[in-house]
Design a protein around this nucleic acid. Structure first.
Length: 255
DNA sequence: AGTATTTGGCGTCAGCATAT
DNA sequence: ATATGCTGACGCCAAATACT
């Protein structure tokens, strides 16, 4: 996958991505030769030790969980190779390369496509209903007052609870962000600066939430891949056993 | 016990995709 | 054309774990 190939796992973040790549590879390999006659519910033990019930994940002659990214991989692998030589000649710069490489589809998209193909695969919901048990609509955004910026540029909450955990429904305007006067009524440079600051804070806040949501989806996606790998491995084993049995039956007896 | 390394999560930025 | 959303990458921090 290009997003792995181009980042050589220097840090744990990218190592994470690499293991995700391995997982995706596993699923595509394990799933490539299967797809019929599986039990409705399979009990599978994950590498982590926990046992999961997976329902009909591999029943259909399905495309792989990661089929679309995989197709990209093939494209990219060839492109990347040619790129290497091209780079040696100094023909294609990194920007152009970026343009060639297609973007990885979102986890939501991948998983939802999968779930529409395959029953038993959970859909990633559009708006998750507060899994932390925090009721929606109780948010109180006291944003700037309890936050200071550290020497490293990070924002830190001064209270017990980090400010970022205090959230509002994504559609609503954060309460801490007071709507400034309409742009038409802005006059002084100071007002303009305040408006710019306010916009920035709003953008950062939204992005913060988006990043959290994105990570949550990614985890869900990885979980899904893990259970799929486990199921496919079980089925693969069964098929191999079945094959051996059939071989025994069909092979001419040598006595 | 003290230190080093690993792991997991966070906020932010950049850049692409999509909606308006 | 602009706004908005999504996600990879990065740097940081804290907790967990391994090592001495």
């Amino acid at each position: 996958m290009w997003w792995h190939q181009h980042n050589l796992c220097f840090r744990h973040h990218t190592q994470e991505d690499c293991s995700l790549g391995d997982l995706e590879k596993k699923v595509s390999v394990a799933g490539s030769g299967t797809g019929r006659g599986s039990p409705a519910v399979t009990l599978v033990q994950l590498p982590s030790g926990q046992t999961v019930h997976v329902q009909g994940v591999i029943q259909t002659p399905q495309p792989s969980v990661i089929q679309s990214p995989q197709i990209q991989t093939v494209q990219v692998a060839t492109i990347a190779e040619t790129d290497e030589s091209a780079e040696a000649e100094g023909v294609i710069d990194s920007h152009k390369r970026r343009e060639i490489l297609s973007r990885r589809p979102s986890y939501r998209k991948i998983l939802n496509e999968l779930s529409s193909d395959v029953p038993g695969v959970p859909k990633i919901e559009e708006e998750k209903s507060e899994e932390e048990g925090t009721p929606p609509n109780i948010a109180t955004m006291a944003v700037p007052t309890s936050i200071y910026q550290t020497s490293t540029g990070q924002y830190t909450a001064t209270g017990d609870m980090p400010t970022y955990q205090i959230r509002t429904p994504t559609t609503a305007l954060p309460q801490g962000v007071v709507m400034a006067a309409s742009p038409g009524s802005l006059h002084s440079p100071q007002q303009l600066a305040e408006e710019a600051t306010r916009k920035r804070e709003l953008r950062l806040m939204k992005n913060r939430e988006a990043a959290k949501e994105c990570r949550r989806r990614k985890k869900e996606y990885v979980k899904c891949l893990e259970s799929r790998v486990a199921v496919l491995e079980v089925q693969n084993k069964k098929l191999i056993e079945e094959l051996e049995t059939l071989k025994d039956i069909c092979s001419p007896k040598t006595d």
